[in-house]
């Protein structure tokens, strides 16, 4: 009994979350539970609601109904700035007028005076993070002097600087070319193994999702079609949509010759 409780203390529980935008429903009652330290991928076509769900987790959007609990607290009552949810955006969203160092240090320097680390300590942490994302020596550069892959690693370092309780990544590699994507994917997974932070990753690329995640949630039209480990989902797709999504995915990425697709098991 005790053991079960501790196991659940830090997990993320999303229960029947719904959200309507002016013209269309974005989320139609989504529920899922994520164990502490897991790597979850939300995958689906555009408009499936995956980004909306991610933004709700980050406090940048609020659901019309439903609950979200994290670490056994009502997550929706915590304002975004107090959640310590490290958010990484598709377009990096780096502060263009600040150097890489200042970008990474931002989350520490905005803390109230009594919680703020000393300047030396902040500097040490920034150096540590620069090393972690393999950008040593680039601290004095401005974001527009970096490549896309480097910028996204700065964004990640910036999110990690606040010692996030969860890491939220919104198509972080979407703006990068295929080769850099693959490299960063491997690197991100290794980083996750090292840090063990509960991570939610949004992508429309099922290959990316399946290569990275411990758990995948396949979303369509504001619902989760199937949720499970990549192996389970691949072995037994529950709905025609999932089966089709799994099949068309690799073809779109050019991994299967055209004749391999054609008839749908649906």
């Amino acid at each position: 009994m005790e053991k079960d409780l501790t196991e659940f203390v830090m997990s993320l529980v999303v229960d029947s979350v719904a959200k309507n935008f002016e013209r269309f429903p974005a989320l139609n009652g989504v529920s899922l539970t994520v164990p502490q330290g897991a790597f979850l991928a939300l995958v689906g076509p555009s408009g499936s609601g995956k980004t909306t769900l991610l933004r709700i987790l980050g406090g940048l959007e609020f659901p019309d109904s439903g609950t979200v609990r994290f670490a056994d607290i009502n997550w929706l009552e915590v304002p975004a700035r107090q959640r310590r949810a490290g958010f990484v955006f598709q377009q990096y969203a780096l502060f263009k007028h600040m150097t890489v160092e200042k970008n990474i240090a931002f989350g520490l320097t905005v803390r109230p005076r009594h919680e703020r680390p000393a300047k030396k300590e902040i500097h040490r942490r920034v150096e540590e993070l620069l090393a972690l994302v393999q950008l040593e020596g680039l601290g004095k550069r401005y974001p527009n002097q970096l490549s896309g892959g480097q910028r996204q690693r700065v964004a990640l370092a910036r999110a990690l600087a606040i010692e996030p309780r969860m890491l939220l990544l919104d198509e972080p590699f979407g703006a990068l070319d295929a080769k850099v994507r693959k490299e960063l994917r491997v690197w991100l997974r290794a980083l996750h193994e090292k840090m063990g932070i509960t991570t939610v990753f949004v992508t429309h690329d099922q290959e990316e999702a399946f290569a990275l995640a411990d758990l995948v949630a396949i979303m369509n039209k504001g619902r989760i079609e199937q949720y499970g480990t990549p192996a389970d989902v691949r072995r037994s797709p529950k709905t025609p949509f999932v089966a089709e999504f799994l099949e068309t995915g690799p073809q779109r990425n050019g991994l299967l010759p055209p004749h391999a697709v054609g008839s749908h098991p649906a």
Binding site: L60, R81, R84, F87, F95, F106, V110
Partner: peptide
């Protein structure tokens, strides 16, 4: 709004976000 959202998620208050992110931009 990306940079403002990023600042908020990093713990900045509305005023800090304005002074340190929006205004310089």
């Amino acid at each position: 709004r990306d940079e403002e959202e990023a600042a908020t998620s990093l713990g900045a208050s509305g005023w800090q976000t304005f002074l340190r992110v929006t205004l310089p931009n």
